[in-house]
């Protein structure tokens, strides 16, 4: 992590807490960041699978091993350390998985919001500290991730909506992305697919934007708010139903020129 200046505009309150080397929990509409001496040590968001899901979904840690660690070390806030000390994970595996979860939840927590933000001093998380990250690094990464999604496919609707298959879902897709596509069923959202796969939610957003760009996945449109009857002349119009996804791709392509 380099010491480049923190970007402005992510969260002025977070920058201030970093400057005063605060310890506690920053609670925002879409998640919570845990700080220790001004560094981010943990993050949680309802939009992302927690470290428990990431570790147990693929069998890196068995469920009973996880719960034993929570029982034995949760009160002392040393669950991560306990997993390593009991030989269930190496330090490297713990750090990689925990950092992945931290940046993932931070991305969603720091999403623009008009909701309330508050800070509870002194609060720490039961998982325990693994690898503290400077606030500026998390803010830079969050902005970079927004730009990455925008570059892949500029329509954000697949990030949050229920997802449905596009017109040609059998086209060849890399295996990791195919596992995301296989869970698209007209109801699940990106977050639900990420939890089912035990994969960070941002990684799932990336795959879904690539799938949307290729026309393989689309957001289920929200139900119409009002049932205004369509005028007779529109209902009998000879204009073909426009392919909205195609028009969006066309617009994106024109904007990229």
């Amino acid at each position: 992590m380099t010491s480049a200046p923190a970007p402005t505009g992510v969260s002025p309150m977070l920058s201030r807490l970093a400057a005063e080397q605060a310890t506690g929990a920053l609670i925002r509409e879409h998640g919570t960041l845990y700080l220790e001496d001004g560094h981010i040590v943990h993050a949680e968001s309802p939009a992302t699978p927690g470290i428990d899901v990431l570790l147990t979904a693929g069998g890196a840690v068995q469920a009973e091993g996880w719960w034993e660690a929570v029982d034995q070390a949760g009160a002392r806030q040393r669950v991560g350390r306990y997993l390593v000390e009991r030989g269930r994970l190496t330090d490297g595996a713990l750090e990689l998985c925990h950092l992945g979860a931290l940046f993932d939840a931070a991305y969603f927590t720091l999403a623009p919001t008009s909701g309330p933000t508050r800070f509870r001093y002194g609060v720490s998380h039961w998982f325990g500290t693994v690898r503290p990250v400077p606030v500026a690094a998390v803010e830079r990464e969050t902005l970079r991730r927004r730009e990455l999604l925008q570059r892949i496919w500029p329509e954000p609707d697949t990030d949050t909506a229920s997802l449905t298959l596009g017109p040609d879902p059998d086209r060849p897709v890399p295996a990791r992305r195919r596992r995301v596509l296989d869970l698209v069923d007209g109801a699940r959202t990106a977050s639900q697919i990420a939890t089912a796969l035990g994969r960070p939610a941002f990684h799932t957003l990336v795959d879904l934007r690539r799938l949307a760009a290729g026309g393989l996945v689309a957001a289920v449109p929200p139900p119409p708010a009002a049932t205004t009857p369509v005028p007779e002349w529109v209902a009998h119009s000879s204009v073909e139903d426009p392919d909205v996804a195609l028009l969006r791709r066309l617009r994106a392509a024109l904007e990229a020129l």
Binding site: L54, A57, A60, C97, G100, R176, G198, R199, P200, H203
Partner: peptide, 10 residues
């Protein structure tokens, strides 16, 4: 490429 026991791309 690092092979991990959890889902990752490291």
């Amino acid at each position: 490429f690092v092979r991990t026991s959890f889902d990752s791309s490291v």
